[in-house]
Design a protein around this nucleic acid. Structure first.
Lengths: 154, 154
DNA sequence: ATTCGTGCAAAATCTTTGCATTCGA
DNA sequence: TCGAATGCAAAGATTTTGCACGAAT
């Protein structure tokens, strides 16, 4: 698992805005929530975690958070728009930090479930435009391409 | 639930190709599978069913198919590319007949879970092109727009 | 006659929830 | 202090599976 290069920047400047966002909406800042947010911020771009993954990471890092809290926090952070909920049709959701400045989409191998990300600014715009056409207040646009990856094609 | 207008066309010309597709790949044609395919063929364009929905419809129409068979059949038909698997992030999958000549995408209300479909040929092409760029053999491309529908915006 | 598909019930997954306790504001 | 968040275990929801029986080829 890749960690950020500059380990001394422990103040995690990216953490403050999200913490503020929580506080401003009347949610409490608990050690569990802070740690969970930190994990997502430190996650390499393009990676995403399931509830189980997150829980495992928390335990690994010495933080005994219950799985129930992991689920509750993922749901809360998603509802606040801080996390993006990804559904790869494999039975459970994945989550990643929502960064509107770094939009990306996914290609999923229907055989080995590997995911690959790509950027396409046209798609991001398309989501907004199409949504607007139907008077939707767009929160997220996800383009998913399903197929066989090169390795699984034999 | 809307049914096809011309009820006398009971031979269901659309049924034959899918049945053939099953037979050619060595799968048996059972009454259950035939009925399930028929239900999907008769489904109004843009509608989609969960396993539970399908099972309910089967029972309603006097066909006592078990839920397990519904699940097994949905999985089989999807793996054969006859059904398209849709995941609206609400905890269970939905299925619709796969019609490459009638591609469409979805807008989902994150509040009431209503879905709305739209067509955009550019997106269909984009899926193929982007997939090809990564040497994927593309099976399906799904563009989902999440947001609040006009009614839920209050 | 085989082998595959089905039904049933049990199990496996994933996620949510009730309640007592703890902790943040 | 006081309500919100947590942990735990139990419950819910969805999907899968083992096994015996029945049906398709």
């Amino acid at each position: 698992m890749i960690r950020r290069e500059v380990e001394n920047l422990t103040e995690e400047p990216e953490l403050n805005p999200v913490i503020e966002s929580l506080r401003k909406r009347g949610h409490r800042i608990t050690a569990q929530r802070e740690k969970i947010l930190k994990i997502f911020i430190d996650l390499p771009h393009g990676h995403h975690l399931s509830a189980e993954d997150l829980h495992g990471k928390l335990i690994d890092e010495g933080m005994n958070v219950s799985l129930a809290t992991a689920y509750r926090t993922l749901k809360l952070l998603s509802s606040l728009g801080l996390l993006r909920e990804l559904d790869f049709a494999e039975g459970h959701k994945h989550y990643e930090l929502k960064q509107d400045d770094l939009p990306h989409q996914h290609i999923i191998c229907t055989n080995c479930n590997k995911t690959l990300e790509f950027e396409d600014h046209f798609l991001e715009d398309a989501g907004q435009k199409i949504g607007a056409k139907y008077d939707f207040e767009v929160v997220d646009a996800q383009f998913k391409i399903f197929g066989q990856c090169p390795e699984c094609q034999r």
